[in-house]
Amino acid sequence: MSHRILLLGAPGAGKGTQSTKLAAEYGIDHITTGDALRANKDMETEYGTPRSFMEAGELVPDPVVNEIVQAALDDADGFVLDGYPRNLDQAEYLSEITDLDAVVFLDVDEEVLVDRLTGRRVCDDCGANFHVDFQPPEEDGVCDDCGGELIQRDDDTEETARERLHVFYDNTEPVIEHFRDEGDLVEVDGEAPPDDVFDRIRNAVE
């Protein structure tokens, strides 16, 4: 049986980690909006190609994102969808084009999210990711993989993290309500250890 899973959660909630594990567990595709757009950036829609917006540094409009995501879902034999829908219009569109088996919301307190987002460090040379609390390097500030310098990216500062969360809550709260109203939403405590979170998501799916 191929599962169709939607994973919702704020930046830092652990969607990427859990999506990767779900995809491996069930042999399904991990679909993110970014990956779908990059894979189909020359797809013609009545509004133009995604590339035309991306190269202009503009947000790709909803109707284009919707078409791209639909194409990715149509190609997939089962999927875990991560990072879409971002607003109510997209959520309503998604409900029209597919029947989801599970909609899981990773619930994490805002202060925990800020700690997770601001603790990330990235190697300036090879791009490896570390975290000061959860995945610290063996030597402070030095990449385990290549010995490069670990830096905090501009979008991982506290001010930026809080702004990202503010935007998420504004846009995605109606999405969560939409799926709650449809009776599909399962809330999972995203602050538990990752393996426990995964077990709870698996229970929700099955």
Rank of each mutant, 00 (worst) to 15 (best):
V64G: 02
S19C: 14
I28V: 12
R51W: 13
D77K: 11
P61Y: 09
L37E: 04
T17C: 00
L81H: 04
P61E: 10
V64Y: 04
L37G: 07
G9F: 05
D62L: 05
A23W: 05
A91Y: 06
A72C: 10
L94N: 10
A76S: 15
A36G: 13
F79W: 12
T45E: 08
D75C: 04
P61R: 11
D75M: 09
Y84M: 06
G83F: 00
A71N: 14
L94T: 04
Q90L: 11
R86V: 06
A39F: 12
E44S: 13
V80C: 06
A91D: 08
A24D: 13
I68L: 10
E67M: 13
N66H: 03
E55G: 03
T17D: 00
V69R: 05
I68E: 07
A71Q: 15
A91S: 08
L73V: 06
G12H: 00
G9V: 09
P85Y: 12
A24L: 13
L22W: 00
N87W: 09
P11W: 01
T17F: 00
I68S: 08
L22I: 14
P50N: 04
A56V: 03
G16C: 01
H30Q: 15
R4V: 03
H30R: 15
I28P: 04
T32G: 14
R38I: 12
G12N: 00
D82L: 02
F79P: 08
G78V: 01
G14W: 01
A24G: 11
I28Q: 02
M43C: 05
F79E: 03
L73E: 08
G78N: 00
A72W: 09
V80Q: 09
G9R: 04
G83H: 00
L22G: 02
A56H: 05
M54I: 08
D82H: 02
T20N: 14
G16V: 06
G16I: 01
E44V: 15
N87C: 12
Y84W: 01
E67H: 06
K41V: 05
Q18H: 08
T33N: 08
V65W: 09
H30D: 13
D35E: 15
D82I: 07
A10E: 09
R4C: 10
T49R: 14
E44Q: 15
I31V: 15
P50A: 05
A76D: 08
D77F: 00
T32K: 03
F53L: 08
I31N: 12
A36W: 07
